[in-house]
Design a protein around this nucleic acid. Structure first.
Lengths: 148, 148
DNA sequence: TACACTACTTGTAAAGATTATAATATAATA
DNA sequence: TATTATATTATAATCTTTACAAGTAGTGTA
């Protein structure tokens, strides 16, 4: 199942003349099997064992290539560094203000907002982004425990 | 009108034991009369004439103090630097993908999304953010002109 | 297989935004 | 006006990301 997705992605890359190097394969594979929306540095550290000589620049380069080929989405939040995900299906994110955890959730796309914004501002609208913020279950429980 | 808002903000600060220095006053005043959502560097450059000796750190310090006192909101987008605004009324932003211009627009708050997200994820939701992206009128016209 | 071409990786330097630190200056208050 | 806590300044440091040059390695062709 997941292997299928990976193979499809590799085929897409090859069709665009992008070479499949071991490092690139590893970055893509890691992202495909990750649900935590890692930063570039997370990925770098995660692959350190497998590729002791890999440069940080390689991670950034590959993330850029994957993004340019529509296989990876870059998420930029308030904190210092970008986060990356492979899940390109239509979904939104909810972010824990305490631990930074990011969780996907589904909601019908906010097309109405887009069309109103277009009408009011005269912009030619292309897309939108939306995130919800709050405290995750784990941190809620931790907070309650600490009060005792 | 605007003077009234400024005076109110100053009173709020004084009540919290925050001193009103000339630099702090200028940053607040500049933000109150700005509609372009400036970066810290924009503000620094704008006040350079009035305060030739002001440090960039002072701008950051003051923006932090103003934010902590609920007078300024920090907007973090994909690009490198944060933007700041004083308009704390309920509104959303639409951003030009060509020139970076940010324009306010009004839309009923997306409470429904928040409550669904809370139900589905178990998070204790506090707020959300949403921005629309597109090409502004000016850039649309510029694009058409360049094609001739 | 040998060659050539191009893309990729690596290591390091550089850029840019923001924060930390220490010394000096100043606003608020009695 | 004197005092004291807070703010400003100048600079160094940090952190993320990009740029660059040199070397490496896939890929296609003869």
């Amino acid at each position: 199942m997941s292997e299928n997705r990976l193979q499809k992605a590799i085929d897409t890359l090859k069709e665009s003349g992008v070479r499949i190097t071991p490092q690139r394969h590893a970055v893509l594979d890691y992202l495909m099997n990750s649900i935590v929306h890692p930063t570039a540095d997370d990925i770098y550290k995660a692959l350190e064992g497998k590729f002791p000589n890999m440069s940080v620049a390689t991670v950034y380069n590959n993330l850029r290539v994957l993004r340019e080929n529509g296989l990876v989405r870059e998420l930029t939040y308030g904190d210092a560094s970008s986060r990356f995900e492979c899940n390109l299906s239509d979904h939104y994110h909810i972010i824990c203000e305490s631990c930074g955890k990011i969780v996907d959730f589904h909601y019908p796309s906010l097309d109405e907002v887009e069309s109103l914004a277009q009408k009011v501002t005269g912009f030619n609208v292309s897309h939108h982004r939306m995130e919800v913020y709050g405290i995750c279950k784990d941190c809620q429980e931790l907070g309650i425990k600490q009060q005792h």
